[in-house]
């Protein structure tokens, strides 16, 4: 079922499970198909085909993008693997698109979108990642910390693909909530944060108030993140969620916002390349150094570049239905004016 960008609100939701081929006789990888999309890989490239066009990506970049899409549950809004291919989270369904948010594809009529039930798409993408990820390659890791994802099939790395991000219900370290990170629970200090102070705050609760007071070292927590560009949640205040993350090298996707989000740079530096959400036209370059604060408006896409592992506080609003309020124009894309 083909669709141009103008038809996107009217797509049927496909619920049929994906198909997997036998392993390729030469390179050993399976081919995956869901709806009208076909995904194949060889030693260097991922090849995505839909009825209107074929798209080719470097296979490591493709897998770094897809593992985030899988781990984030399709995230908020648009996950652009590059300027052509990606997904849109509608929350009760997910669009997979080719060129639907690229002006040249739209102008030529070669854009294509299909809509899927989230569970069947997640199963397809997860199965693909499990099959295509070789031993020694961790698509969550910075390039300097992992082996190559290229070459013929060579084992697997299910532990990396199955990594679960930590999502606090209220506040890290409270009884029953997510724990602090430590050597003991398998979270050693990352090589790029070897100088980060590891002391924990002193929490002195009087008798009867144990478990009501809480504090932890957020910088220590981030220094022990084993992954990059994969936010956790450490505190929730009503709909306000602190989603800190450690960043190194390049955010593998252009995240297209369906709501306002904020970045608070806690250490080091990230440069953001910002483009129009619909057309991919360049809009700005935002350089953030320690202490800098910037919003990402609801109508843009952004990709970050972090030369050294850095600490970024991503701040989100979890209010249900926000995406519809921004899409309808009820809420402006910028959260304050002056």
């Amino acid at each position: 079922m083909a669709a141009t960008a103008e038809q996107i609100t009217d797509l049927p939701v496909l619920t049929e499970a994906h198909r997997e081929s036998a392993p390729h006789p030469v390179n050993g990888y399976k081919r995956f198909e869901i709806g009208s999309f076909r995904f194949e890989r060889d030693e260097y490239f991922a090849r995505i085909q839909c009825p209107t066009v074929t798209h080719v990506m470097d296979v490591e970049n493709f897998m770094r993008s897809m593992i985030r899409d899988v781990a984030w549950g399709f995230f908020y809004g648009w996950v652009n693997f590059d300027e052509v291919f990606g997904t849109v989270n509608n929350y009760d369904s997910v669009d997979v698109f080719m060129g639907a948010y690229n002006q040249a594809y739209k102008d030529s009529g070669t854009d294509f979108t299909e809509r899927f039930e989230p569970g069947v798409l997640q199963a397809c993408f997860k199965g693909l990642m499990l099959d295509w990820t070789n031993a020694g390659f961790n698509p969550f890791a910075a390039p300097l910390e992992t082996g190559s994802g290229r070459g013929p099939k060579n084992g697997s790395n299910d532990e990396a693909v199955n990594f679960q991000r930590e999502l606090a219900d209220r506040f890290v370290s409270l009884p029953g909530d997510t724990p602090i990170r430590s050597d003991e629970n398998g979270r050693p200090v990352n090589r790029q944060f070897a100088d980060v102070d590891q002391s924990e705050p002193e929490v002195h609760a009087e008798a009867g108030f144990e478990g009501q007071l809480a504090a932890f070292n957020l910088f220590k927590y981030l220094s022990r993140s084993p992954v990059t560009w994969n936010p956790s949640i450490v505190s929730i205040v009503r709909s306000s969620a602190y989603c800190p993350t450690s960043e190194e090298h390049i955010l593998p996707v252009d995240h297209g916002n369906d709501r306002v989000e904020w970045f608070i740079q806690m250490s080091d530096e990230i440069t953001w390349r910002v483009a129009d959400k619909d057309s991919a036209a360049p809009m700005s370059v935002v350089t953030m150094k320690a202490g800098d604060v910037a919003c990402m408006p609801a109508d843009i896409r952004h990709r970050g570049f972090s030369p050294k592992r850095s600490m970024l506080l991503v701040w989100e609003n979890l209010t249900p239905g926000l995406e519809k309020r921004y899409a309808s124009g009820e809420l402006p894309p910028v959260p304050a004016t002056f």
């Binding site: 090589r191 740079q265 700005s284 800098d292 004016t337």
Partner: peptide
């Protein structure tokens, strides 16, 4: 490695460079 943090007495500020048709103020930087 040196992890760079800021303070009131010592910080460097980045900024917004516009390449399209918008304004730096939209980022509330």
């Amino acid at each position: 490695v040196t992890t760079v943090f800021g303070s009131i007495d010592k910080f460097e500020k980045g900024g917004v460079e516009i390449t399209g048709n918008e304004e730096a103020r939209d980022y509330l930087f």
